[in-house]
């Protein structure tokens, strides 16, 4: 990892060279290959996420994507965009940064911990719902992975849209575990099905948080991992259908998954009904005894009279 060229500590102030806006650094939220993200506060007291990096071109591409996908058809896809500028440090070095909505949430892995396997499907449906919107706009997420997601009030949000690529182009960045090219399952070209494969791998990751490597025969590895997970059992056929290329769009895949989840719910709602039935009997019994008591009471009262 390259040493960071800037030194920002809690309390440091970042002033934009072009727009002149001031941000106070509160703390570091995380860092990656292309920059460091800080929590910051404006003079007005609003908190935002501020990303500072070295590669100004890359940062600008991310900003372009944020501007485009902060809000699509009224739905927030990525964090909303706030500001883009350069910060000049004491030594005169310029560092590009941008400011966006701060999404306060937890990682998908900690969210899923201890939850029933129904949630694997629910999370995937949420992902597919957002992907459907993105794909409709002619873009593909590209580097779809759990590191780029956060769960904020039970809803999955994208926090890094740096890999979003126009449909038909080459995928510009990917992470091997989620990349269908790595698994020998297709081209590294941005098309909706590229993201759909990544969704199945995110589901796999929920069952195997430590992930796994492809080994000498990638497809066999995938199949055996899928077969030996009890958590993924309800989704086994669904995931295989995706790998076989049966789902061409996020919409179709979502429909397939919804079927599974509804079927499961039907199963559990039957249980619910039975329980409801029993509760009804209890109620009848209680009503009956109250009635009996009342009759008995009135009988006693009339006896005294």
């Amino acid at each position: 990892m390259k040493k960071r060229a800037f030194n920002l500590t809690p309390g440091s102030q970042v002033i934009g060279k072009w727009n002149g806006h001031k941000y106070m650094i509160i703390k570091e939220l995380g860092f990656g290959a292309c920059g460091t993200v800080f929590l910051c506060r404006t003079l007005q007291g609003d908190t935002y996420a501020l990303k500072m990096g070295e590669d100004s071109s890359r940062m600008m591409l991310e900003v372009n994507m944020l501007k485009k996908f902060g809000k699509v058809q009224g739905v927030k896809l990525g964090p909303s965009f706030v500001d883009v500028d350069d910060w000049v440090d004491q030594k005169g070095g310029a560092h590009p940064f941008y400011v966006m909505e701060y999404i306060d949430g937890i990682s998908l892995s900690s969210f899923i911990k201890g939850k029933t396997n129904e949630w694997i499907g629910i999370c995937a449906i949420q992902l597919l719902t957002d992907l459907e919107k993105l794909h409709e706009c002619g873009y593909v997420f590209g580097d779809l992975k759990t590191d780029n997601l956060l769960v904020s009030s039970s809803r999955i949000r994208w926090i890094d849209v740096g890999g979003v690529t126009a449909s038909g182009r080459a995928i510009k960045e990917y992470t091997e575990f989620y990349d269908r090219g790595y698994w020998g399952m297709g081209m590294r070209r941005s098309e909706p099905t590229y993201d759909l494969f990544a969704v199945t791998m995110i589901m796999m990751e929920m069952a195997y948080p430590a992930k796994f490597e492809k080994g000498s025969s990638p497809l066999k590895t995938l199949e055996s991992k899928l077969a030996s997970s009890s958590q993924l059992k309800p989704y086994r056929q669904f995931i295989q259908s995706c790998w076989k290329g049966r789902y061409k769009s996020a919409q179709a895949m979502k429909a397939g998954l919804t079927d599974i989840l509804l079927k499961r719910q039907e199963g559990s709602s039957r249980l619910q009904k039975r329980r409801d039935g029993r509760r009804g009997e209890e109620m009848e019994l209680a009503a009956l005894s109250i009635f009996a008591a009342a009759v008995f009471g009135s009988a006693v009262v009339s006896f005294w009279l």
Binding site: S56, L61, N64
Partner: peptide, 17 residues
């Protein structure tokens, strides 16, 4: 590119892409 104002820089990087 680095010296351009952010707005124009945004357009230039799209061309590079």
């Amino acid at each position: 590119i680095e010296e351009l104002p952010p707005e124009q820089r945004g357009e230039v990087v799209e061309v590079v892409e």
